[in-house]
Amino acid sequence: MAIVNQCPEGGVNWVIDGELTIYTVAELKAELLPSLAPNGDVEVDLALVNEIDSAGVQLLLALRQAVTACGNALHMKGASPAVRDALQLCNLAHVFDGHASLI
């Protein structure tokens, strides 16, 4: 599940915990989509994600795309070992560092 914190400076902070898999992505998208605002960066904390699959990574990519489309940045704050492992597998760790971009 996800907790959405609106930051006073305008940004958003998401904390996702538990499963970030095909079984939860639909629900997570529904929870997170409304909090996307045109102003302010997004910070996502994945330190509590104990399971993630490619559908989870795909959702993160879609979220990132939506944020950058508005000219903002998405930063990954924390990453659990499962998340780090998955991002390494598809070589996307740098994308969520906030520096590099997708081709």
Partner: peptide
């Protein structure tokens, strides 16, 4: 490995499943 999502619609339209 290079991951690509060119086929993915924008967030509101994309089906996460």
């Amino acid at each position: 490995i290079v991951t690509t999502t060119t086929a993915m619609p924008a967030l509101p339209e994309m089906d996460p499943e």
